[in-house]
Design a protein around this nucleic acid. Structure first.
Lengths: 340, 340
DNA sequence: CTTGGCACTCGTACCGCAGGAGTGCCAGCC
DNA sequence: GGCTGGCACTCCTGCGGTACGAGTGCCAAG
């Protein structure tokens, strides 16, 4: 009973503070929410909440603001994921359907996420691990340079220019193309890499070097390293919502956005596509971003090919809305990748 | 004589203001620069410069700051392009040499430019116009969908997924691949497009539709539209240098950075690779960016395939340094594209 | 044409003060 | 035991007034 009201008070404080960005006092609280009790009672509850470390006051005679711990409690226990309205769902799927290649899907996702949440959105490129090799194309650029193009089932194309140790004939190239496609086409990436690695061993002495470098570049292209290290960011203009403290909030965020490695760290390891992870303030991996929260989730065609996407915003943000948007976008993107 | 000193004063004001970001007064001016005259004399010169609209004072009892017109004069008449030191040249070429594909070149260029100038860097993708078609690859994704891959001499790869109007056999695809490569391989883009456009006309009735959609997607991929509309931005963290007025300077810039179309407008039409264009404050195409300057230049393998790159910063910026860096990077990138 | 002197302007920092929001606590009431 | 009204207290915020100093413009002399 009493506990219930205390929770209602915490929820009200979080919601009001998120909306107004100002510390909220007992009087305004009872005015704006139907708590059915007097300000004095609310004050007692607030004192208890402060005792528990869920809220704090910036200075003695000010209202309360939620602490990181308070937001955590709010997210874990007081939030039910808002369902998206039918119109929103239609808008999302419509917007993403229009995409015609992988880059396009990723780019649209970021824009969409940024727009829906009015925050900075981050999308990691899908991992290649589950995708299969559609085709490998070799093109001679000169007698000692070749272009290796790897086409994957997801529609992703990786390319490498390879310097050859010895001169090469068109016949050899055609032969190699045949062998490589025979070994790799249709296979999952991991198996294709294994199959390819065996190729040079069977080759004639005079071409083993050529086989070697080309296969090596393919294997390298196949390794996830390139693709899922790539990250796309959108909605940077929403940094304006981070508040007025440029140095303490916006600047470190700008710096983080420059470094893709840092962004990947921020997104964290996606655990599953159904679970939306929330990292609040100091919980995150980067100390400078102590007033920044991350709402992220995994996405991908299958459980074993997860990438991550999410949004980044000030700790004072609309968690339920962001979580719903992140989850919705992730699920739509996943299903689109699944078709492809 | 007197004119010379006035110019020296203007130069000193610009340099000091850029360095300190504070209005500069007559006294500090004679202290920091060897002008050989008294503050009073400098004051007279300043009054004259203000009369001409080259400098202004933010309020009555403050030092002077350059106006846009003053910067313009400084750039046009008082600046000689700093040559880069040998070490800098080595660093630049070394950093860019390491790139192994077009995306990589572009990305390294932005980073480099941002680092050299400590500002926000923008690089437009090279136009395709001069490059030739290396190879076209068609891959069946299903009987009614095909992946069209266009490989250009620059190493750039464009891809499209095409929905086919009727089912297609592997034979037809092979035939089509042959015909297309016969018509387009080795040709410049513009000629390849023309040659390809003629193909469907010669096709048998039952496959004319298939020919049509595939050729259309190729022609579309060949048109510059896609590639040189792409823009890459780097060094966003340097927005911090824009000053403290978030709303009037940083926010509009963040918004501009979101929209690639706006960025292209900012870069402007590159005129030639040797000329570095400077747009100061209100001279630019976007009113909101009235306190922002752009230093840009064209680059590319040849005069007829120009794209643009440059940096964006507050009007109060180091023009000589930025201009030198922009020119140097442009020339190195051009030569690298030339080799490829 | 330059220079030193001088009066003047005006933005900034500092101070003190009143106002007000919000709290904590206590005594009374249901 | 929990809720409520009352009340004293704290302390942030805004405002006006003031002193200071940087910087200027002007003038008369060199």
């Amino acid at each position: 009973m009493v506990e219930d009201r205390k929770m209602a008070v915490l929820r009200a404080i979080v919601e009001d503070y998120v909306a107004t960005q100002e510390p909220v006092g007992s009087k305004t609280l009872v005015e704006r929410h139907q708590l059915g009790v007097s300000p004095a009672t609310v004050r007692n509850d607030m004192a208890a909440l402060e005792e528990e470390g869920l809220i704090a006051q910036p200075h003695t005679s000010a209202g309360r603001i939620p602490t990181d711990k308070g937001y955590r409690f709010f997210v874990d226990r007081l939030t039910t994921l808002k369902a998206m309205s039918a119109a929103e769902r239609r808008a999302i799927s419509g917007f993403l359907e229009g995409a015609h290649d992988l880059d396009d899907v990723v780019q649209r996702s970021v824009r969409l996420l940024a727009q829906l949440t009015q925050q900075v959105a981050i999308v990691q490129y899908p991992t290649l691990s589950r995708s299969t090799v559609r085709h490998v194309e070799l093109v001679a650029l000169s007698t000692t340079r070749a272009l290796v193009v790897l086409i994957l089932s997801t529609g992703r194309v990786e390319q490498r220019v390879v310097e050859l140790p010895v001169e090469m004939t068109d016949d050899l190239l055609a032969d190699l193309r045949l062998k490589i496609n025979g070994a790799a086409a249709g296979e999952r990436i991991s198996e294709a890499a294994t199959a390819l690695a065996a190729l040079p061993e069977k080759a004639a002495h005079d071409v083993v070097g050529t086989y070697g470098v080309i296969v090596a570049s393919l294997v390298e292209a196949m390794s996830d390293h390139r693709s899922d290290e790539r990250v796309v960011v959108g909605g940077t203009a929403n940094l304006a919502r981070f508040g007025d403290n440029f140095d303490s909030a916006i600047k470190p965020m700008l710096e983080a956005l420059e470094e893709h490695v840092v962004l990947l760290k921020l997104l964290g390891h996606a655990t599953s596509s159904s679970h939306v992870a929330v990292r609040i303030g100091h919980e995150g991996p980067i100390d400078e971003l102590f007033s920044t929260s991350v709402v992220a989730t995994g996405y991908g065609a299958a459980e074993d090919s997860l990438s991550a996407l999410g949004v980044v915003g000030p700790t004072r943000m609309d968690y339920p809305g962001s979580m719903a948007a992140v989850r919705a976008v992730a699920s739509y993107v996943s299903s689109i990748l699944d078709e492809a």
